[in-house]
Design a protein around this nucleic acid. Structure first.
Length: 276
DNA sequence: AAGAAACTCAACCGCAGTATT
DNA sequence: AAATACTGCGGTTGAGTTTCT
């Protein structure tokens, strides 16, 4: 279902566009301090009430309130006014993380931003498009598909790496490889520890995909993620396939080894293929 | 010094999923 | 159940700024 443009909403005949003024910022900030985030669509109407906006020094008394659509208010708050937004340049650690997460998630800017406290999806998107895209281009003459410009319309052909991992079979866990550092090793230890206690890994709690979920949920720190030895993932995949060939332990009907992957071939190719 | 080109980044747009009426 | 509103996302634009020639 299509949506009508902002200007047609809220009964506003005219909606301000372009850069926000200091007065508008103040009005929006004050409103959110009082009412909290959300209900963006009500902001133009609510801030237009005399009781709310009388103290602001509007140049024209008929212009009380924010002549902005809710969507615009939300964007302004989330990308600029919100107090916990981090200002300043992207650090090297942050850049590394952006590169890795982009490799993993593609253009899921909000997900990437979720792992960078104080950074907004818009900021990361801009940073990628202006800095990192060029860096990658300089490193590889053949630009990765997932940062190629998309056709004008349609999102269905987005070339981001698929998150639809093969469902991992329950299998015997590989031996802990001491050299596997970071969140991958941490996940392995957790799973093996569980299996020793009789808690066999299942498709729901195996290490294959939850490590990313856990990362997203704040289970791991930035440094742990950065320490992860992704070059070992391919080995892990092979170990699991081999184990599965030797017989899965839970009697699952889906016992073919090709289903027993930690990560899809596409992801492995992406991770192992270049400097990443 | 001036114009052109490249860059940055805030803001806008359309789409889609979810919530509400 | 259908229509409408709300919210969030990613892609794109364009004004302002900086760098280059």
């Amino acid at each position: 279902m299509g949506r009508s443009p902002c200007r047609e909403k809220n009964g506003l005949n005219t909606v301000n566009r372009g850069a926000w003024t200091a007065l508008e910022d103040q009005l929006l900030t004050d409103y959110i301090k009082i009412h909290g985030e959300g209900r963006w669509g009500k902001i133009p109407k609510e801030t237009g009430k005399f009781s709310f906006s009388y103290k602001y020094n509007f140049s024209n008394s008929t212009q009380y309130g924010l002549k902005r659509c809710g969507k615009s208010c939300r964007l302004r708050w989330l990308n600029y006014l919100k107090p916990d937004i981090k200002r300043g340049n992207i650090t090297q650690d942050e850049e590394d993380l952006i590169l890795r997460l982009h490799k993993l998630l593609g253009n899921r800017w909000s997900l990437i931003a979720g792992r960078l406290p104080g950074r907004t999806d818009n900021e990361i998107k801009n940073y990628w498009n202006s800095i990192l895209r060029k860096k990658q281009h300089a490193n590889h003459s053949d630009l990765p598909k997932n940062i190629e410009k998309k056709p004008i319309k349609g999102k269905s052909n987005e070339a981001a790496p698929s998150l639809n991992m093969e469902p991992c079979l329950t299998t015997t866990m590989p031996k802990i490889e001491p050299s596997i550092k970071g969140v991958l090793g941490k996940r392995m230890e957790a799973n093996i520890s569980d299996s020793r206690e009789g808690l066999l890994p299942t498709c729901e709690n195996d290490m294959s995909w939850n490590f990313m979920t856990d990362l997203n949920a704040g289970q791991y720190s930035l440094s742990e993620f950065l320490q992860t030895d992704f070059s070992k993932i391919s080995e892990l995949n092979s170990m699991i396939v081999e184990d599965c060939n030797n017989g899965c332990i839970n009697g699952s009907s889906r016992s073919s080894s090709e289903e027993a992957h930690l990560f899809s071939d596409e992801i492995l190719k992406n991770w192992a293929g270049d400097s990443f």
